[in-house]
Design a protein around this nucleic acid. Structure first.
Lengths: 211, 211
DNA sequence: GACTTCTCTTGACAACTGTCAAGATCGGGC
DNA sequence: GCCCGATCTTGACAGTTGTCAAGAGAAGTC
């Protein structure tokens, strides 16, 4: 019935707790989210956390994994449905801005956890894994863009991800401080940057799709 | 005598405390650095902080400002001394890798605070200001690179900063997990990316300096 | 219906936090 | 030498934290 059917009731509860935890974590950040606060934003009491999770870290990691699992396919529809390079750029830029609008707290949390992983060894493995999945997600976009233009990519997958992630992060930062208006700037930036990620000199005569 | 002479003894002590605070903050991150821990890594006791600073936030902001003031000129020598575009790229890439090697904790702290500023209003003003100074610092490099190649920049200052910052952050992340070896990758990436930041199609016949 | 197992709440614990006040210590001016 | 202000230490405060144990409640089985 549910899109991802939990193996049993136990796993279902874990997901439920993760969902509640994400609300709190997204609003307050990792450091300031206490287990009592997290439980407060859930139908349960603070003690229940230790019934379903070993400790706070396990809950946090489970939660961010739970969220990111749904996210790494965010641009796949864009990749699938765009018939021209121009279309892809616009759809991608729009989707980036949209997710900042809709899910800013989750993105803030992600950057928070990724940064904390540099101080807290225990986070590192999960963060590294998710970051690799995000890199792959972005690469599908860039690779498809390259195919549509008929030009080969000009940078590696990790460079492309790092650069676009940098743009996204700055946009999120600006959005947090300034709200809605800054999002147009992100779209403009993406329109300017994506073409730089393919080698325009050496383009195919017949790109994989019409232009 | 000292390079930057404090107005009086009071300011000198603030700097001294800031220096100690940076040690702790860089090692543990913002959230896990208590005032007692900070004072422990200083010649003073934990109570003295409130003699020199209003509260913890003021100390942290003062400390990061104190550090970043010295940093925003990091690449100015590179900009000044490079006679060719190739030289500039190499010197810039080397300097980026070097500062990760030498000052990783400080960079970790910076990203930590910048992220926390999305959750903690009180940090926002200082962070925004420093980020703008960093953007200007990077722009001096890119602008000079453009001049040396004779090609105009292909992106805005904020895009250039965001992208290079993204690369730097990924390198820092990888360095934290994997150490020294990953730094070669950063240099390679910078060599590939800097040329994308100028419009190679429309280059001047006579770049500002010989090539 | 009794018994067992799963689920959850409550209350407590020790440790830690930022803050601050009371007083010790120090240094320079008279 | 004495005093006064600046400087610093000590100890305490109220609040919060993650963790866990004891037991209440629910659910399912025989």
């Amino acid at each position: 019935m549910t899109p991802t059917r939990p193996v049993d009731k136990f796993d279902r509860r874990r997901d439920e707790l993760a969902e509640s935890a994400l609300t709190t974590l997204g609003a307050m950040g990792y450091a300031r989210s206490s287990l009592r606060e997290i439980a407060g934003n859930s139908p349960f009491s603070h003690g229940v956390v230790h019934y379903y999770f070993e400790d706070k870290l396990e809950l946090v990691i489970y939660s961010v994994r739970y969220y990111k699992a749904r996210c790494v396919t965010r641009y796949d529809a864009v990749v699938r449905d765009s018939a021209t390079a121009g279309e892809l750029v616009e759809a991608f830029a729009a989707k980036l801005a949209q997710t900042i609008r809709d899910e800013a707290p989750m993105h803030r949390l992600w950057y928070d956890l990724r940064t904390q992983s540099m101080f807290e060894e225990g986070l590192r493995e999960a963060i590294t894994e998710i970051d690799a999945a995000l890199e792959a997600m972005i690469w599908r976009v860039v690779d498809r863009y390259a195919a549509l233009t008929g030009c080969p990519p000009s940078v590696t997958a990790s460079s492309a991800y790092a650069m676009l992630d940098g743009l996204f992060q700055q946009a999120l930062l600006a959005f947090t401080a300034g709200g809605e208006p800054v999002l147009d700037g992100l779209a403009t930036q993406v329109r300017a940057v994506l073409p730089l990620l393919v080698r325009q000199g050496v383009c195919d005569r017949s790109p994989s799709t019409s232009r």
